[in-house]
Structure formats: structure tokens, C-alpha cells
Design a protein around this nucleic acid. Structure first.
Length: 318
DNA sequence: GCGTCCAGGTCTACC
DNA sequence: GGTAGACCTGGACGC
């Protein structure tokens, strides 16, 4: 879809805010779609907001201590001032411009693991996924597969069934909407992108969301952590790990891979039976970091390369 | 080359 | 209520 209309917005996030680390996370997590383009400090990406396809160009107009995001929004139709204001508000929230890292950094300074990560990734903020169904599909396609295969499934799924935002000579495919996927068949999903048993869940979740059986992202945010998670657990194929990834409140999403990492960080050794270590590691992370456990998880995972080097050298775990 | 195992979980039948 | 086994696929590994 060609997006020929545009308007510009200047966002002023709370400092510290590293534009580059926030929109282009070190572990390779994309902002809104795995097929977005990042070149010389500028990100071209796209997403659906309430079924409206938008293209975005983002760059930094400031510094970590005096941040500014220069944002151009592209749409297929002319938008009213009220629509533009609403879009600016939603994108600001997704980019965490009101996020205050002060309390988390205060905790991190005294923590033998986190003190390294916040130093390495100073000003990195978490961001919100493009929409609820995108988050659901992401978590399902991460299940029970090596990362490479998950990435292949995601890319095929997005290229095959997502709309393409065309603007400024770029073509950015976005995550499919539940309305589109609900009209497909499980067999087609399984065969075309080799989703395996996950095809059933991707399809059933699309039907579930299309029938509005679940609140939108913004509404889930208004609920308590437990209530939001309980609502998400009603989705087919969504268990404890996936709900922790999807929830706007976030959780401490420990799977086999991260249980291995955090077990080494907490206890200095790999877990014996990895599956059974998940609960133990999760409980320990929440005990140590409480309401900041998601941010601790987020910073640790993004900083693994630096962290493993530093921990080998001088970390004394408590 | 071929067979087996298992991976960044979740569901369900069975006890 | 707790738990073993099944579920798609493909890469790694042993033979």
C-alpha cells in the first residue's frame, strides 16, 4: 500500500534516552517489524494502529542526556489534526518517551549483575510491540524452536500475509492483522511457512482476537499485572512464558534458553535438568528484582556479550 | 547417507 | 492436582 501523506512530529523523551539503543536493540530485537530498515542512524519501520497502516521514519535530533526523536509519519489517506494528535500520543507511549529509568538505575547500581549492564547500555529504554496480535504471534513462533528457525517462520509469515507499507522508496512488510489470518486455513499456514503445530495457535488466536474476546493493548495496561496475565492465558497456545512476553506489564519470561543463562548468573553453573530449572530461576529473579524483574531481564539479555566477559573477570555472586 | 535427539512451550489424557 | 507424552520441523550428532 502506497503511503503518500505525511506529517512530522518531534518527541522529547525523558533523559537518559539512547535513541539508537532503544530503537535498535543490541540483541537484534526489532522495534515494530523484523523487516524494518536501519541505515546510518535512521530507522524506517511500519505498523498497524487500529487497522490504519502507518509508515515511520525515525532519527535522533538530540543526545542521551537531552534526547529528541524526529519522527515522520506516513499514511495512505489525509489525517485530521485529532487523528495526528492521537497517533503522536500512541507512538510516544510505544517508544516509552515518558519512561523514567531513575528508580531502576538506583537498584541496578547496587546489583552485582545489573551494574555492568546499565553501564554498557546507559539510556536504553524498553518499547511496546506494534499490536497485540503481533505480540501473540511473536511469542508463539518463538516456542520450541531454535532462534534461527523462529526467525525464518516469522519472516515467511509476515512476507506472506502482512501488508507492505510503501513510502520514501522503501517497502516495509508488517505483522499480519488478526482479520487477515482468521480468513486463512490452518493447513495453509502450516504448509507455506512450516509453522508446524504452531499454525493452529496462530489461526485460533486470530479468530479469538477478531471476535474481540480480549481487551486491546491499551486496555490490558489499565488492568493489574495478574488480571492482564490471566486474560492472556485464555488465548490458545499462550502459557506462562508467552504471557510474560505479550503482557504490557511484562513479566520475567524464563524459557529453557534464558534459564540456562540466569542459572549461570545466579549460581555460577548451568542447571542440571533445564526444564525443571525454569521455575527455580524465575522465582529467584523475581525475589532479587521484584517489580524491576522485566527490566533486569531486558538489560541482561541485551548485554550478554559484554556481560559474559565482565562476569568471568570480576563478578562475585551473592 | 541414515536414524535419533532435541530445541528460546503448551496442551491434554491419564492417574 | 500433578505429570508424562505428543506436537512440526530441521539442524546437529553419532554411526
Amino acid at each position: 500500500m502506497k503511503l503518500n501523506h505525511s506529517f512530522n512530529v518531534y518527541l522529547r523523551p525523558k533523559a537518559p534516552y539512547s535513541f539508537e539503543l532503544t530503537v535498535r536493540k543490541p540483541a537484534g530485537w526489532p522495534l515494530f517489524t523484523p523487516l524494518e530498515i536501519f541505515q546510518k542512524g535512521t530507522l524506517w519501520t511500519a505498523l498497524h494502529l487500529d487497522n490504519l497502516l502507518l509508515g515511520l521514519r525515525l532519527s535522533s535530533g538530540g543526545t542521551v542526556s537531552k534526547p529528541q526523536i524526529v519522527l515522520s509519519v506516513f499514511s495512505g489517506e489525509s489525517l485530521s489534526p485529532a487523528q495526528k494528535l492521537e497517533i503522536q500520543k500512541i507512538l510516544g507511549a510505544k517508544l516509552s518517551v515518558e519512561n523514567d529509568l531513575t528508580d531502576f538505575y538506583r537498584l541496578a547500581e547496587k546489583d552485582p549483575i545489573l551494574k555492568h549492564s546499565v553501564q554498557d547500555l546507559y539510556g536504553m529504554n524498553d518499547t511496546e510491540l506494534s499490536h497485540l496480535y503481533a505480540a501473540v504471534c511473536l511469542s508463539i513462533l518463538l516456542q520450541m524452536a531454535p532462534l534461527k528457525r523462529s526467525q525464518e517462520m516469522m519472516e515467511c509469515f509476515i512476507r506472506s500475509y502482512g501488508e507492505v507499507a510503501e513510502f520514501e522508496g522503501k517497502r516495509i512488510p508488517v505483522w499480519p492483522t488478526p482479520e487477515r489470518v482468521a480468513n486463512l486455513s490452518t493447513a495453509e499456514l502450516a504448509q507455506k511457512c512450516k509453522l508446524g503445530y504452531r499454525a493452529k495457535y496462530v489461526f485460533q488466536c486470530a479468530r479469538f482476537l477478531e471476535q474481540s474476546s480480549l481487551p486491546a493493548f491499551s486496555e490490558l495496561k489499565q488492568l493489574s499485572f495478574e488480571e492482564a496475565k490471566n486474560r492472556l492465558l485464555k488465548l490458545p497456545g499462550i502459557g506462562d512464558y508467552s504471557a510474560d512476553i505479550i503482557s504490557p506489564h511484562r513479566g520475567f519470561p524464563i524459557d529453557v534458553w534464558s534459564a540456562d543463562i540466569f542459572s549461570q548468573l545466579f549460581y555460577g553453573a548451568k542447571p542440571g535438568a533445564t526444564r525443571t530449572a525454569i521455575e527455580q530461576v524465575k522465582a529467584e529473579g523475581i525475589r532479587r528484582w521484584g517489580k524491576w524483574s522485566w527490566m533486569a531481564f531486558f538489560y541482561t539479555v541485551q548485554d550478554l556479550e559484554n556481560l559474559s566477559r565482565k562476569l568471568e573477570r570480576d563478578l562475585r555472586l551473592f
